[in-house]
Amino acid sequence: MTAPETRGIQITNFRKLYGKTEAVKEVSLSVERGELFGLIGPDGAGKTTLMRAVCTLLVPDGGTVLVQGRDAARDIAAVRARLGYMPQRFSLYQDLTVEQNLRFFADLFQVRQKEREGRLEELYRFSRLGPFKKRRAGALSGGMRQKLALSCALVHTPETLVLDEPTTGVDPVSRHEFWEILRAIQKEGTTILVSTAYLDEADRCDRVALMHEGRIVAVGTPEEIKAGFRHVLYRLAGRDARELRRFFSGLPQVHSTQLFGDAVHVVFAKKPGQSDWEEWRHALEGKLEHWSPERPSVEDVFLELIGSGR
C-alpha cells in the first residue's frame, strides 16, 4: 500500500446526506494510480454520489476526498483540470458532428493547439470513430454515442477518469468494446473509477467495491470477491425444472433457488453429501438427473451479501 497522498483516489470516512436520508454512510476507499477500479451496485446504492464527490461536484458532509493527492472539496480548480468525468446522462450536442463535439470540449479544456490534432487522432483511433467524424452525434448508435462521450472526457488527457454507468443500456457487443477501450486508456497510466449496474462487468476491473444502500459491502479483486461466497452453489438439471425448484426451495438447508431455463441453481447453506443427493433423487422419482457444483457469479455473492433470503 502506498501513502494516501500518492494514491489515485483516497476517500476517507466520506458521508453525504440529502435532507435526512444518508446517501453515503462513512465510506472509505482507495484507488491506486493507474488502477481500473469498479464501483458496483444497484440503482440508489450511492455510486453516483461518491463519484460526484470525487469530481468536486459535491461537498462532503463528513470525511475527505483526495484526488491525486489534492483535496476535491478545496482544491477544486486543480482537481478539475486533471480530471475527466463522464456523467450518467452525458449530454452531447446532438446537432453537432462528432468532430465539432470533440473540438468544443478541447476548447473548453483549453487543449493547446499543437497538442490538439495529435490528441484528436489518438481518440479517433481509440474509439474507432474516425470514419464517423462528420456524422451528427444525434445520429449515432447507443454504443458509439458512449464512445464519443468518453472521447470528450479524455480530450485533455486527464490523470483521473471518472465514469458513471457508461455501459447502461448499451448492447453486449458495444459494452465489450467499451471495456477494451478502458483497458487501453488504463495502459496510458490513467486512474479509472467506473461504476456499473451490470454485476458481470466486475470481472473487467482490477479491483471492485460492491455498494449497497450507501455502504461498501465488499472490496477486492473479482476473484477475491467470488471467493468470499460463504454458501455452496449447485446447478441441477432434470426433466422438470420447475418441480425441481419447488422441491429444493422447500428444504431447510437451501438458502435460495433460481430457475435458469431448463436448469435450477440452488444455494445450499453447506455442501450436501453424496447420501443427500441419493435421497433427493429418490424422492424426486428420477426427475433429478444431473447436479454439479457451479462457480458463483459476482451477482450470487452480491445477493448473498445483501441477504436476499426468500
Binding site: G44, T168, G169, A197, L199, Q258, L259, L303, I306, S308
Partner: peptide, 13 residues
C-alpha cells in the same frame, strides 16, 4: 434494464 439484481431475480421468478 435498470432494475437492480435482487429485483431482477424476483421479476424473473
Amino acid at each position: 434494464s435498470g432494475v437492480d439484481p435482487r429485483a431482477r431475480r424476483e421479476f424473473w421468478d
